[in-house]
């Protein structure tokens, strides 16, 4: 929600302007110059997401063969991170974004609608940072918000297509692919939609080491190995049979969504460049 911050900033400015206007009523339109706000002391971090198959980065929709010998084409991968915080050397935290949405699909230049990407950036005060932590999904206190009250560009707007209309909640992770599990054609659909407050997960604190001066730019990568999602020790998913879930409907759907979520979150890694 970069936008949210921008709005708050604009609102803040408007408030200041309004107060100035009110206190110096007669000066309206011909008052003396107002001191411009000091440029804030901030640095910028870019966080990009990579889906990998072993050591190679996965390209959207391009066929690849996983460690089980199944072939897949990735059609959709979108997910929310929320309450993104950076941990300072003294253990205190700095919230940098309330909600971000990653979409693995490359930008379609023919559309002039808001689109999300594999990359988000945010600003934060300069300083020394030793960790990063986030939630995967949307926390319960905002999961019941009304998407129509957000601007189109906001990841929580109806436009991000993450909203579950019938249940009035957000989906957390959407993964869709078509697969060849041994038949010789891509006739096996993978369709995983997760959601529900029960499947909100908080990541561990990933260690990083960033000393940011004002104006610095840093890059972090969030990576995930496709094989870790499905073939995790003790929680593997039998892709031949277990490949469709909307989380709700049946207990089996929930169990699959739950295992998928846990593997997904456990598989996430943070790399510092």
């Amino acid at each position: 929600m970069q936008l949210k911050q921008t709005y708050q900033w604009i609102t803040g400015l408007t408030l200041v302007a309004a107060l100035v206007a009110l206190t110096s009523f007669s000066g309206c339109g011909n008052g003396g110059p107002i001191d411009p706000p000091k440029p804030p002391d901030v640095a910028e971090i870019t966080l990009s997401f990579d889906l990998e198959n072993g050591s190679e980065e996965l390209a959207f929709q391009a066929p690849f063969t996983d460690v089980m010998g199944y072939q897949h084409r990735l059609l959709t991968l979108k997910f929310y991170l929320s309450n993104l915080v950076l941990v300072k050397a003294d253990g205190s935290t700095e919230e940098v974004d309330e909600v971000v949405l990653f979409d693995y699909k490359p930008i379609d230049p023919s559309l002039n609608n808001p689109q999300w990407t594999r990359e988000v950036s945010f600003t934060l005060p300069s300083g020394d940072y030793t960790g990063i932590q986030f939630g995967v999904g949307i926390p319960a206190d905002i999961n019941d918000e009304d998407p129509t009250t957000y601007a189109n560009e906001d990841p929580l707007s109806a436009f991000s297509n993450m909203y579950w209309n019938w249940a009035t909640m957000y989906r957390f992770i959407i993964l869709e692919a078509e697969s060849d599990t041994g038949t010789g054609s891509f006739d096996h659909d993978i369709l995983i939609h997760t959601g529900l407050d029960d499947l909100y997960r908080t990541s561990p604190v990933y260690p990083i080491s960033l000393s940011l001066a004002s104006g610095d730019q840093a890059a972090l990568t969030l990576s995930l190995d496709w094989n870790d999602i499905w073939y995790a020790e003790g929680a593997s998913i039998l892709l031949k049979e277990e490949h469709i879930t909307h989380t709700t409907d049946t207990q089996e759907d929930f169990d699959l969504a739950s295992r998928f979520t846990d593997n997904f979150v456990a598989g996430l890694k943070i790399n510092q460049e």
Partner: peptide
């Protein structure tokens, strides 16, 4: 954002009241 939007409208109204000539 919802809440800030409300504040935005409010401050805009205040501005309208304050700067009557310009607006």
């Amino acid at each position: 954002m919802k809440k800030t939007f409300g504040a935005f409208v409010l401050t805009s109204v205040l501005l309208l009241v304050a700067c009557s000539t310009e607006t």
